[in-house]
Simulated assay, not measured.
Amino acid sequence: MRQLIGYAVSGVILAAVAFAFAPRNPQPLAATQLQVDRVQVNALLVSGPQLLAAGERGTLLSSVDSGRSWHAAQVSSARQATLTGLIALTPQVLVAVGHDGWILRSDDGGRNWQETRYDADLGEPLLGVWSADGEHVVAYGSYGKYLESSDAGQHWQAREMLGDGAHFNGMDGDRQGRRMLVGEQGLVLRSDDGGRHWQPLTPFYNGSLFGVVTLSASHWVAYGMRGQVFRSEDFGDSWQRVELNSAQPIYGHARLPGDAGVVLVGAGSQLIHLDAQGRLLDSSRRNGLGTLTSAVALNARHLLVAGERGVSQGPDSGLAAHAQ
């Protein structure tokens, strides 16, 4: 009897082993839906037919259908650092920046990214990236961090800047050499020679400015804490406050095609439309979108916004769209 029991147990074990290692042809699993509405998105970018997004935990996403579906990019160095800025130097060459001095570069349109800089020891966030010509690139951020690249983001060098170590939060400019850099405590630096020389402007606000945008050679808009928006018609020599019925901070913007102006976005799901001279046209809120950090114009009529609840949100198709 004991032999029979032993044979039976051995047979069960052999059968289990054979089953475990036997070749199978299982039914394919359904594709996993990428839940972009559960990711904090800090930067949006339109590059050719693509829409790209960057955000928390090193998230880099791309979409070819105006944000209805998304695909995660391949990153050479998997890190959990938050990404804060994106720029397309050409349709194929892109640069992303973020916390811990992290800089990534793609040369295939955003499908694959390679790390070009990382400094976890210093741990200082980069908060944005900007370029006028696609070759000379600037990355800027906390404690006056200002990095320059002359080879489309492959190599970087630090540069000392005015500002006594204040955070640099936003930058914009044009191809004629005019630039502005804004930051905490009302800091505004201006250059008219492509960034070779900078001058501090007389402070017109004592709180943090989070962004600046050029609307023309003379017309500029700066925005920041407590719903503060300022416009200049003389390249920053003087500024006028744009009166808003809001004290919510404003974090991002999108220039609209043609002479349609700019839309600012911020906390409380607010959208603020200014004309091409920086004058207020409309201010509204979109329920359920949370804090908005970035926006891009998909075309002349629609704006896609993103923030703490990602970009797959809002009514209808799941996009947060604002018709102009």
Rank of each mutant, 00 (worst) to 15 (best):
A120F: 11
A120I: 14
D121E: 14
L122P: 00
L122K: 15
G123A: 13
P125N: 03
L126S: 10
L127N: 06
G128I: 00
G128H: 03
S131K: 05
A132P: 14
D133V: 10
G134K: 11
H136L: 02
H136G: 04
H136K: 13
V137R: 05
V137H: 04
V138T: 12
A139G: 11
Y140R: 01
Y140I: 02
G141W: 15
S142V: 12
Y143G: 00
G144E: 02
K145G: 04
K145I: 13
K145H: 11
K145P: 00
L147H: 07
L147K: 00
S150V: 09
S150Q: 12
S150D: 12
D151F: 12
A152F: 12
G153M: 05
Q154T: 14
W156R: 00
Q157S: 07
A158C: 03
R159C: 02
E160M: 03
E160L: 08
E160Y: 00
E160S: 14
D164L: 08
G165P: 00
A166M: 10
H167S: 12
N169E: 13
M171V: 02
M171P: 01
M171T: 01
D172G: 09
G173H: 11
Q176D: 14
G177N: 05
G177Y: 14
G177Q: 07
R178W: 06
R178G: 10
R178I: 09
M180Y: 04
L181I: 07
L181F: 09
V182C: 06
V182I: 08
E184M: 02
Q185I: 04
